[in-house]
Amino acid sequence: MLRFVLRRLMLLVPVMFGLTVMMFIIARLLPGDPVGLAAGPNATQAEIAAYARDFGLDQPVWVQYGRYLWGLLHGDLGVSIFSRRPVLADLIAYLPATMELVFAAMALAVGLGIPAGLAAAVWRNRWPDYASRVAALAAISMPRFFLGLLLQLTFAMWLFWLPLGGRFPIILEPPPTVTGFLTLDALFAGDWEAFVTACRHLALPAIAMCLSPLATIMRMMRASTIEVLQQDYVMTARALGLPPRLIVFKYVAKNAVSATLTVIGLYFGWLLGGTVLVETVFDWPGIGLYATSAIVSQDFMPVIGVALVIGLMFMLVNLLVDVLYGVINPKVRYT
């Protein structure tokens, strides 16, 4: 088990290396003049050249790449040519907001999707199944940014229930940082009001993000539950006199979840990469919004940094999923 985890962690190295190569090449192939943009509209040719020299952008690409890798090995992700701030510091500042959003969306998707899928399978072809099927189809087919706009219109503009966007009001004092998750930090600080405020801001973007994983998890859970319900051991459990509720929520659920676990892991990565649109719509100060502004100004170091972080998270979550398989299915052996 430990050897399995270590081997998988070692696999991270070539993948991350490949990711840097790809991102570097793509960044250079794109047309545009990042230095010109960064130096400003009134800069002279000499000033632009000096600017490029400052950032080493006058060097051949492979030299730039070598320097970047060297920096990466020392924990340096480069510098934004716009703000001149180190990318690593920016990521540390913005990543918790994104993670909080993704975790909240996943918690909603898993927490609602698994029971709903179970219910749809148990009451197969009855009203809970039909209702969930229609809801899933609607949730899957609606683009997230459009859904975000609809949610804003309804709950912020018409009903005034929830804030339009942002993560925490500027006029209020945020709770002291422990985890970087405002909701958790507020709880740690015992600040109930701040917790409610943070949740109210989190609600709409998290709902906008959770719907399509929720729908997928629900449908997967329904399919695998139906399969498990037909297994011999379910009939045996009934014949042995186990109560139906225990059979479904304990014995069937554990077997059915293992197939759904794969989707949960994949969706986690998908959400991380997909926060860009939702963060933009809801003005959520995470790495998605950070990446968007960097792309617009052709500021490539932040873009590469964001891609690396998302790639790393994706691999780690999928490793976690593989480990969880073993917890759920005792027959899984790690080699």
Partner: peptide
């Protein structure tokens, strides 16, 4: 009927490999 299963009427089945829950 469910109340009778297990306490009044017991059952064993053909294939012992598929009648035990593999995850518990």
């Amino acid at each position: 009927v469910a109340a009778l299963r297990g306490t009044r009427i017991g059952m064993i089945f053909q294939d012992p490999t598929t009648n035990l829950n593999p995850a518990f």
